[in-house]
Design a protein around this nucleic acid. Structure first.
Length: 201
DNA sequence: AGCACGATTAACT
DNA sequence: GTTAATCGTGCTC
């Protein structure tokens, strides 16, 4: 059992955190059962000048978590039905975060399957709203400390992902965001390797 | 007080 | 490829 990542891990430039979160373990303790997903896709959202970032609106009730300490969760609601999980980065008072866009479930398969009932395994957690549904994440996890295990959701070190297995590209879903923010390659994705799909817990 | 729209998904044609 | 679902948020009046 690993220790969670430290606040110092998150108190770095957001692009470095987004890159380094690939391969880390997202851990959820849910009804006494442990769900673990290897992070395979992230996006960086950096400051009020990033017009793709919610913080472009400044500090509001919604964006306040991004202005808080690094290593906390920023969970927001969108499209009338979906929850998104972010990890807050950089120094406190600088609004930035990394969106967790996809994980590969490696523990708690039965629970994840039941929570993603009609989907095939490949589609369980391959999208930001899919993984929050699968891991039972919603507004109750907003602002919780991802560097502590006591609130049931945290991030641990995981497997090393080499640069040859990382691809970057534009962030997804920013259709009406102006350039250069629309196309800036702040999306990070694991490519090439696939994970063993072993354990059945 | 009203309104347009979104860091998406699933189910269509 | 297109589109409905569904509602909180931030902006305009």
């Amino acid at each position: 059992m690993e220790q969670p990542l430290s606040p110092e891990f998150f108190a770095r430039p957001t692009l470095a955190v987004a890159r380094d979160l690939l391969g880390c373990r997202l851990v959820r303790s849910l009804d006494g059962i442990r769900l673990v997903g290897i992070i395979t896709e992230t996006e960086a959202y950096i400051g009020e000048t990033d017009l793709g970032c919610h913080a472009k609106a400044g500090r509001t009730k919604r964006t306040a978590p991004m202005y808080g300490p690094p290593g906390r969760a920023y969970v927001y609601f969108t499209y009338g039905m979906h929850w998104m999980l972010n990890a807050v980065t950089e120094a406190e008072a600088f609004p930035a975060a990394v969106l967790i866009r996809a994980v590969e479930t490696v523990e708690g398969l039965r629970v994840v399957e039941s929570r993603r009932e009609k989907a095939p395994r490949a589609d369980w957690t391959n999208g930001p709203a899919k993984l929050t549904a699968a891991f039972g994440i919603d507004s109750r996890q907003n602002t919780i400390d991802l560097t502590q295990t006591n609130s049931g959701l945290w991030i641990e070190p995981g497997i090393a992902i080499s640069d040859t297995n990382v691809t970057t590209g534009p962030r997804v879903g920013l259709n009406s965001v102006p350039e250069p923010w629309k196309s800036i390659p702040w999306r990070f994705k694991v490519s090439g390797i696939l994970f063993q799909t072993s354990s059945d817990t």
